[in-house]
Design a protein around this nucleic acid. Structure first.
Lengths: 334, 334
DNA sequence: AATTACTGTGCAAGCGTTTGTACATTTGAT
DNA sequence: ATCAAATGTACAAACGCTTGCACAGTAATT
């Protein structure tokens, strides 16, 4: 059907192995032969069959991405698609393709990982997760299969990973609010069991403590998720608290722009003017609300890019490091 | 290194071909033999090597996705990732994997398509585009390579595609506004050269004409893009028009929630209260603004799902149709 | 009892590459 | 002139699977 190595070999009057070596630019082939073979390749419009190549080389030149649709955040938060773009860019520049799979829960994540590994469908895997006790990480480590993680894993030593410095991000946000004169600052965190949640919480607590401000439990919500619903719910809870007037915050540090929008919705509904909010991810819409005075841009594309770089470099045998910290940027409203 | 068909064959005391036939559940193998072979497969924890399988079958069981990062819409509009989820779901349910590639412009799109086709890396391609005169479509048609398109192509007959009824979507939105008492209605459209833009524009024009309202050119913007910047710009242009007071709209039909946000930004800045806006894509944030009174949900996940279905079914030889129209849903603000 | 028709399994040839090794041929040194 | 080394190419065996065909063995038909 389509043109193969042998067709080229015949056309150029050499053997298949010679053509193969021309393709890999082997020094053992003379300049004239290379010339002749390349001409034949052009003329016949030959492209190597990647499947046959993968079989012979025992490498698919493909990385697999395991995504999770359990929470709505995959489709609502631009974080993921941005990271995917970053991954694709590094992969493509290095001759790799990217495969993805959307899974409904952790067990399906694991199944996909096992399928990828067992059927040798990919050379490495990128995980979009940082659960504590992540089953996929555990499995991949046991299999000694190459992988990298977006999000800091439990064991930061034996795993390649990229992440923001989430501690420093909320620390910085909180300090920013403090320098703006706020002292009653509320915090809304992310899902429990994720390191990102812990770090962001810790950064907030640290800033408050460094500046000598106390934190009242009634305005801190450390176990939720990144949804706007959770933001909404937290704000309503705060309002309905009996000691709200005593503890009323003037600013709220949230862990996601969606959360922040949920908070803002309540504030608008209840006509409460004097509370400002900060978010994460610097989504285009977040900054449209005048209450949202800052958002942390996590540079998702870079996170993806470096996750791909760690993985692919390591597959290639060019160990370039075991993790990257991608700087966040505090985007303040003009 | 890892366990192969031959290992299983040896363990079960049969030949490799028998094991292969057991895997495909061939009727030519007796029940007892199947039993024995399956036991060996379990015991050895054997998984078929997908690359070898692809080579022998001449099919990769993979579909390729060509994405374009030229405009920011890929990362800003949840449309794409939602469609990708839909694709992944149908693919996975049918034993296919999905590969994606992010490209910077139309030529890169084409390069990727050519690479996918020539190297036999995928069995089919899904295009996220509906440019008029699309180079990829032209190429894939000439190659007679299986593909489907999300977005209506020029030639609706010889190409498999899925799309919303964009004409009816804006028609419905416009009629909705009319029934709410609006008659001066402005329109902001999408990028030129895309069928989606034309259809949405036509739907708007039709509704206006059916209800006997005239359209003044100064409040219609049919050549732009889906960005919030463009929405912002259009609204400013309208405001600075000398005859704004005559033509001042009371409602604006936009082609994207981002555009709508751009419009709203201007309206808020200029403190213009009496103009409402409609959008597209029903993004979570869009509906937070009280001016945004409706948005068209395009059901992106279904678009992806059916694009994958068309493609994969056709690859399998089960021709199920040549296109799908996925219904939109007009989401009105409570 | 001999022929025919199944049934279940194995053999071996692919699928299109890569790569270790062998084999000519040329070159340079003796 | 002879031999060793260097150079350029071809051969053939992988890689792990699928599948057409052949071939036993058994069952059914005359």
């Amino acid at each position: 059907m389509s043109v193969t190595l042998n067709d080229v070999a015949r056309a150029a009057g050499v053997s298949a192995s010679t053509v193969s070596r021309v393709l890999s630019d082997s020094p053992r082939i003379s300049a004239e032969t290379k010339e002749r073979v390349r001409k034949a390749i052009k003329e016949l419009n030959y492209f190597p069959n990647s499947v046959a190549r993968s079989l012979a080389r025992n490498s698919t030149k493909t990385v697999g991405l395991i995504l999770n649709t359990e929470s709505q955040t995959l489709t609502r938060n631009p974080f993921f698609i941005q990271a995917m773009v970053g991954i694709s860019i590094y992969a493509q520049a290095n001759g790799y393709d990217v495969m993805f799979s959307c899974n409904k829960n952790e067990d399906e994540d694991l199944n996909t990982a096992m399928r990828f590994v067992s059927s040798r469908r990919v050379d490495g895997i990128i995980l979009f997760t940082s659960r504590t006790d992540d089953k996929c990480i555990y499995y991949l480590k046991r299999q000694e299969f190459p992988f990298s993680v977006i999000g800091r894993p439990d064991d930061t030593d034996s795993v390649m990973w990229v992440d923001n410095d989430n501690f420093q991000a909320t620390y910085q946000v909180t300090v920013y609010l403090i320098t703006k004169g706020h002292s009653k600052i509320s915090f809304i965190g992310g899902p429990p069991g994720h390191n990102v949640s812990k770090d962001r919480f810790d950064g907030y607590k640290r800033a408050m403590s460094v500046y000598g401000f106390s934190i009242s439990d009634s305005i801190v919500f450390s176990n939720g998720d990144f949804s706007e619903e959770f933001g909404y719910e937290c704000m309503r809870t705060m309002l309905s608290s009996p000691d709200f007037n005593i503890n009323k915050p003037t600013a709220i540090v949230t862990s996601d722009d969606m959360q922040a929008l949920g908070v803002i919705k309540v504030l608008n509904e209840k006509n409460i003017p004097d509370i400002v909010v900060t978010g994460f991810n610097n989504t285009p819409v977040g900054m449209y609300h005048s209450r949202m005075i800052a958002s942390v841009d996590v540079n998702a594309k870079d996170l993806g890019y470096y996750a791909a770089k760690l993985l692919i470099d390591s597959i290639k045998g060019e160990k370039t490091g075991s993790h990257y910290i991608v700087p966040t940027e505090l985007v303040k409203k003009a």
